[in-house]
């Protein structure tokens, strides 16, 4: 909210939202068009590309073997990383991950982890020693707002598309055999992000709205309509009433998307 240009735009956006409309023609509760394409990277164990309006995110998954965490010796490991690739926006710079990409990765991670989407107990090879590690790498290819929802969708879509290598253990060594099974999944969480502009909540903020909104809230919702992760972001605040309203909208929108996607 720092330049004069955006102040003019803020006014324009605010006036529209007060009338229940948005700059790109959507209603305040509408998502942009969502397109999902799976399995487009052959060398990855799983992959998916999500288009959320013009926002484009590609997720690839890799499966390797490694050590489990000491406190969960019988469970596989999930590792999520996010790259804000410089070609996706003039505001992204090459270099080590900044706080925005780390936050994005951790929000995606929490949605999958807390909903127990991956049956990690089925990824154990040898308790305490050897388990499967699922790497989820989020690649933002075009930034037009709401990277969180696009990335969360792409991550789950990629996991749905992920092939598990067949293996056998011989003398304590893991041998990868030919053929694949699917990655065991238990849940398909959907993350819904709302922006707050001048006291109004809008669903799926796009870039211009993100530049003027004072805060956002993201909620991951599972099949039962329960909440499994939340993150507030931005330098503004929400009233308690707005939080409860956001919760209701998120649950409703997640159910709507779930139906549309057949998840």
């Amino acid at each position: 909210m720092s330049s004069l240009v955006t102040r003019v735009k803020l006014k324009q956006i605010e006036q529209l939202i007060a009338k229940g409309k948005r700059l790109d023609g959507r209603g305040i509760g509408d998502y942009r068009e969502i397109k999902i394409e799976q399995g487009l990277i052959e060398k990855a164990e799983g992959s998916a590309r999500v288009l959320l309006g013009k926002t484009e995110v590609l997720v690839g998954t890799k499966i390797e073997t490694g050590e489990p965490f000491p406190d969960t010796p019988n469970e596989g490991v999930l590792t999520v990383n996010a790259e804000l690739v410089p070609l996706a926006s003039p505001s992204f710079e090459p270099g080590p991950p900044d706080e925005n990409s780390i936050e994005l990765a951790r929000i995606v991670d929490r949605g999958i982890r807390e909903s127990k989407a991956i049956a990690t107990e089925k990824l154990c090879i040898e308790p305490g020693k050897n388990v499967f590690v699922v790497f989820v790498d989020v690649y933002v290819l075009n930034h037009d707002g709401n990277l969180i929802d696009a990335s969360a969708l792409a991550a789950v879509a990629a996991l749905l598309n992920t092939k598990m290598p067949n293996y056998e253990v011989e003398d304590g060594e893991v041998k990868i055999k030919t053929g694949y099974t699917t990655l065991p999944l238990k849940s398909r969480p959907i993350t819904v992000t709302l922006g707050k502009i001048n006291g109004n909540l809008i669903v799926d903020p796009w870039l211009e709205e993100e530049q003027v909104m004072d805060s956002r809230i993201s909620m991951a919702i599972n099949e039962e309509g329960n909440i499994c992760a939340i993150q507030k972001g931005g330098s503004g605040y929400f009233t308690p009433q707005q939080i409860l309203e956001a919760k209701n909208i998120a649950i409703e929108k997640a159910a709507e998307l779930r139906k549309k996607l057949g998840w």
Binding site: S115, N222, E224, C228, Q231, K232, Y237, I243, N248, I251
Partner: peptide, 14 residues
């Protein structure tokens, strides 16, 4: 009456 941080992990009903 302004909430400035809200996070959650785990599963809760509404």
């Amino acid at each position: 009456n302004a909430v400035t941080l809200l996070q959650m992990d785990g599963i809760l009903t509404p």
